[in-house]
Write a protein that binds this DNA or RNA. Sequence first.
RNA 1: GUCCGGGUAGCUCAGUCGGUAGAGCAGUGGAUUGAAAAUCCACGUGUCGUCAGUUCAAUUCUGACCCUGGACA
Length: 301
Amino acid sequence: MTHEPAFDDELWVIVGPTASGKTELAIALSELHGGEIVSADSVQIYRHFQVGTGKPNAAERARARHHLIDIVEPDEPMDAARFAELAAEAIAQIRARGKRPIVCGGSFLWVKSLIFGLVPAPPADPVVRAEHKAHVDREGRAGLHARLAAVDRESASRLSENDFVRVSRALEVFELTGKPMSVWQASHGFKVQERPARLFGVRREPGELDARIEARCRLMFENGFIEEARNLLERGYGDCRPFGSVGYKQLRAALSSGRDLDVASLIGDVYRATRVFARRQRTWLRDQPVNWLEAGSTKLR
RNA sequence: GUCCGGGUAGCUCAGUCGGUAGAGCAGUGGAUUGAAAAUCCACGUGUCGUCAGUUCAAUUCUGACCCUGGACA
């Protein structure tokens, strides 16, 4: 390199749907620009979940240092805000070493929370959530939604009464702060970048991405995905967060059904679930200012 | 070969006491502020296996045939 790119002070963030080749691009850029990779992946962050997560392998980790992979136990609390704190620390350390941090991951709320921060409301409260859950068990989701409507009309009208996750969080924020979630959100609004960032992604044709997803699924099963999942279930991790993720969720259902495994159809299930996930990621990315690179290219801008 | 089930949406199935049918999943699009690989929203015309019979009307009843699962031979 004869000179550094002009956007030197910006945080480089590699995004894109699953199996698009984010890891490869991030590693290639690390090698070219003296970088270290900060993973923004809500499943790779957990220990013990290996085969089904698409974590970089040993050879890839030898090419570039990775951060925020395998750092918490499956039953430890983790969320977007906590991730942003950890990522900020990692970024500071990398820069202190004179290296370039390169964020890479497909968990876009996590990426967003790193770049813009989240509403400064308190974190999840297990007691509040348990109470909400109990309320739903008694009176249904509509009952909880009605409770939210009484204190935060705007959030309630925006949310489906079936969207328990968001209804509960919005109500929780009000109960913890006395201030409606919609008010918090209006003043925050993801308007100000706390951290200047530049997004990059790898462009793939839809058919090509499907083929890559399918190949990756097959490889996971060849690499012992079923055995790993069975082992994790036996060790009591069945109710942990990452077991609800794509692939592990399907394996948990199959392994705990008591029926014989139909591996071919399991692979199909996981493939389809992964495609559905990739579609949701596409929706997230649709209006983002991503600089799309051709596959195999490391030319930024 | 005989007996008993089945053959309905891409898949698994529900249903129509006769008036041409609907769920889940998949697919497509969308939302997304501390669970985010999570969670949620919208979008449903398909020779109701084939042929014939009864009927004003059959996917629904009857018969034959084809395919398929199981049991018995």
